[in-house]
Amino acid sequence: MTTTPPGTDTSGHTVAPEPALEVTGLDVHYGRGRRRHHALRGVSLSVAPGETVGVIGETGSGKSTLARAALGLVRASAGSVTVGGEDVTAYGNRRWRALRRRGVVQYVFQDPLRSLDPDLTIEDSLIEPLLIQGTGRKEAAPLARSFLDRVRLSEDLLGRLPGELSGGQRQRVAVARALITEPRLVILDEPVSALDSANRVQVLEILKELGAAGVALVLISHDLGSVAGTADRIAVLHRGELVETGAARDVINEPRHAYTRLLVGSAPTLRTAPASRAEREALRALLDA
């Protein structure tokens, strides 16, 4: 399934900017021989600068593998990955490290408890990507302050340890840390799943601002609400395959694929009950057929 994001044209005639991330026919598998297991099958997805693409799907659908492939943490067995116009498919460890060091791509983990080193102060954690780049501590310090401000946290937190912060605060620190190298692409794996609604909204609002500022975001989540509220486009992964991609409104309002219908139908909303068990069974049968 190929998708044409707004602003780009597969024919290549437009002067549209390079996609921040372009994945074409991506296959990833784990294990060998009989235990070989396909995590992703022929996935193609393109994310334009400033665009927020939500990737939804359930446990085991390959969401995280997609993220890890885009970061070079998993190798593709077929297909190609292009980051900011740079074909990284065949990159070895060294070239990946050099690319990552430029801070073009960043990643935010699901678990804010464990994604910050418990022994480093918030400031040290924040500026780590800069220090890795070779920036001096002195130049990095003011940046730490301004990015903390950008995620609406007080400077007082700089000297604290992660253990003294709430889950929501920690996740915002993790977001600030990912932003400090001014990346053009940020991949977020379930960034709000561990947060309560107030913190969730705060983080999602920060993400919206980022999108507006021209940063491309890939928002991976099993929570349809968060994705619907933030993403411009939604890609639906089912058993390693991309079954549907489209504008967020269309995917939620008029899901075409049976799996998307099942997902959207399963979620209760304030005004509508989820699809009945019979309806869901029918959709499942359709999927297994």
């Binding site: 609604s197 107030a198 969730r200 909204v201 999602l204 349809l224 609400g225 968060s226 619907a228 509220g229 933030t230 967020a248 409104r249 939620i252 309002n253 959207v264 979620a267 909303t269 304030l270 005004r271 509508t272």
Partner: peptide, 19 residues
């Protein structure tokens, strides 16, 4: 406030007009 947040960052954002 809770409901407004839910409307903005939930499926309701899109579903409401359709309903």
């Amino acid at each position: 406030l809770l409901i407004a947040e839910h409307d903005q960052y939930g499926l309701e954002k899109f579903l409401t007009p359709k309903e």
